[in-house]
Design a protein around this nucleic acid. Structure first.
Lengths: 127, 127, 127, 127
DNA sequence: GTGGTCTAGACCACT
DNA sequence: GTGGTCTAGACCACA
């Protein structure tokens, strides 16, 4: 799986990494037990600072997606707390939906969008 | 409608304002043509700096939610570009959904959540 | 000829008025010797402040488009200084053209645009 | 390339900067991928406030001329939307042309002026 | 009284 | 060291 940085994005590099890894897990390209590249290796690969990669991994640990191991590096390990997940998701999509409502997007269209994203993740091809 | 700042949140003040106003529009508490308080007035009310309110208004203008009127301050005026709205929404909820999938949240649960938020907005009571 | 204000525009009201009157002259809807509405009348018509109309007229006088007469109000009277006109125009369109060049617009396209605007002015229909 | 402020001009400092940078791009003195000085550095150089430079850069970003890069500051990156560029240019030069018509400037003279500006940009020498 | 612009100085997150 | 955010206080153009 390819991780890469958009240096022009407004999003912090460590957030970009975090997001890509989460999407990698959601699309099945990375699985429980898989290990992420070492901090140093990944940093070199994508030409960013070691500390930035480190921060991305720390956030992923904090959010319950990986476990950090001194010898084996970062290992995907999902800490599933569905209830908390639902609450977080609610907060995260509420503003986006409010924006959508203002723009005239209707409920069915949001449902369609959700399905669309699900399909996208299910049939992910490296793009 | 009450606008307020959570001084402990890690979200920027101007983003908090922006979000509240967007939700205000989505829930029908603010309507097309209504005017927002003047930057100075609102700043005084919620005890933040004028320029911060100004930034919130500028962002809302930029995103097509208000127009700035020389006489009456900021006026709600929706620039509806549904197609663009859908694209933005897709980006904004994709990561949240990926997170959810990792946490074992299933498609129907997301749909349920969407409905829940819709109901929340539709039957909003000042809370 | 209809003068009107876009209250949402970023452009100052008096500039909007000035522009409309200049275009009115360029399109032949207002002619040398015609008189503009009285400050008070126009202000009432379009619901803006008298002082704002006054400012528009002053600018037009300053730029050599009207003469102000205490009894007859503002009379179109062109003070033609072609050389100065060319210099001003050069300054005014230089930045716009630089912008265009950055956006990949080519010389012939600018010429075409100039012709297009000329035709527009020549065959103006109240729109 | 030299950026400088005319402290006597009635144009806002940030607009002056914006214009100079756009002309810099149009004349080829700044190229895609080049980076602009950091906001602090430029502000010091030309003795204006950091925030004013920042505003200039934000406007340039908004208008699709630069991207802001966390590591290298502002990078020239042209977001070419020719159609939109043409529309904007039309608006921007229409009033200037109307003024010219009132002053007796004829179509061929405008064309000549356009060519003149093109030559000026093409053979730009620091002046 | 309104927003627009500019200055000054501060803290923080990210790199 | 970089931009992002916030505060504070000032002047001006516009309405």
């Amino acid at each position: 799986m390819i991780l890469s940085i958009d240096f022009n994005s407004d999003e912090a590099f460590y957030i970009q990494l975090r997001n890509q890894i989460i999407i990698g897990i959601a699309t099945g390209r990375i699985r429980e037990g898989d290990s992420l590249p070492s901090v140093r290796q990944l940093a070199d690969n994508i030409s960013i600072n070691m500390h930035t990669v480190n921060k991305a991994y720390s956030v992923l640990k904090q959010e319950g997606f990986v476990k950090l191991d001194r010898r084996k590096g970062a290992i995907i390990s999902l800490d599933v707390d569905k209830q908390r997940g639902l609450e977080e998701m609610k907060e995260e999509i509420a503003v986006a939906m409010a924006k959508g409502i203002c723009k005239g997007i209707r409920r069915e269209e949001v449902h369609r969008l959700v399905d669309e994203i699900y399909e996208l993740f299910a049939n992910w091809e490296e793009n």
